[in-house]
Design a protein around this nucleic acid. Structure first.
Length: 283
DNA sequence: ATGGGGGCCTGCCGGC
DNA sequence: TGCCGGCAGGCCCCCA
């Protein structure tokens, strides 16, 4: 899925279009994604104004004027498309309904938001805004990787007691919330740490370097407008560019980009997921 | 208690 | 050309 930079890119694309707008019509084409939609979802969204569109980890959070918050998760293959005429920044006509268009929201300014998700690993939920910290999707999440809360002191303290691989520690959303497979691979490469190294076996110095490297990778990806892989698109349908900047992800067998390194990028499977790394640069 | 693996879904791509 | 296996950005759940 879209990891943090892709979700943030979607959020930034949606803000000028739907923030402050009222939802005038809701179309729900099936009862669930990964889980059943919340009770009365269409009715609870109808006639609500989106007062603020936020992001927490990989979740989009739309605060509604009535005191509830609409949560959207894109899973692996979810995307949102915006269409509408006379809107300046986006001028496409509403497209004909596509396969896997599961939820369609029409706004007071004529904008239409279509949620499309072939694999249906995504999720939607609605909760009382003041009870956000109790929401089942959010309550266990660790700090945002771009916040000051995620710093070298915090991370070294958490990591020193973890016997699992650094790869799996970084993917654990309770430890830091928003990283996924791509940006973990890229951050570990930048820091020269092997994905299979046990977190507790890595020195404070190296763990400390990982923190700013994670920030840098995420920030560069956000600046580039996210990564467009198989099915990610910006909210307005444009493609992101960060995938052209991957050093290791998806580059098995290609030369390591480190100057003077003559190794090829390798792939291994950890916890059922591919890790891409340079066997020479990452120890 | 922690970590590893399976499962949820569909689509796409490469090999035979 | 057609079929089949492998693989995909996430995350929950079960088992050891």
């Amino acid at each position: 899925m879209p990891e943090l930079p892709e979700v943030e890119t979607v959020r930034r694309g949606l803000v000028p279009v739907i923030q402050g707008q009222r939802i005038e019509h809701v179309q729900v084409n099936r009862p669930d994604l990964r889980w059943p939609f919340p009770k009365g979802m269409a009715k609870r969204l109808s006639q609500q104004t989106i007062t603020l569109l936020r992001r927490r980890s990989k979740y989009l959070l739309a605060d509604l004027s009535g005191g509830e918050t609409f949560l959207i998760h894109l899973g692996m293959s979810g995307r949102v498309l915006i269409s509408g005429e006379h809107l300046g920044t986006f001028v496409t006509n509403h497209p004909r309904k596509q396969n896997h268009d599961h939820v369609v929201l029409d706004f007071s300014n004529g904008a239409r938001l279509t949620y499309n998700d072939p694999r249906r690993f995504g999720a939607m939920d609605i909760f009382e805004t003041v009870k956000e910290s109790q929401n089942k999707h959010l309550h266990h999440l660790g700090p945002e990787p771009l916040s000051n809360e995620f710093n070298a002191l915090y991370f070294t303290n958490v990591a020193k007691s973890r016997k699992s691989s650094i790869k799996n520690v970084l993917l654990d959303q309770r430890i830091v919330a928003g990283l996924g497979n791509i940006y973990v691979c890229e951050s570990l490469y930048r820091t020269g740490i092997s994905p299979k190294k046990k977190a507790c076996d890595i020195s404070r110095e190296r763990l400390g370097k990982l923190v700013p490297n994670i920030r840098t990778v995420l920030e560069k990806a956000i600046t580039a407008g996210g990564s467009s892989l198989r099915d990610f698109r910006h909210a307005d349908g444009e493609l992101g560019y960060f995938q052209h900047s991957f050093a290791v992800y998806g580059r098995e067998g290609k030369p390591c980009p480190t100057p003077d390194c003559d190794s090829d990028i390798a792939r291994m499977v950890q916890s059922g997921r591919s890790s891409f790394y340079c066997p020479k640069c990452q120890k």
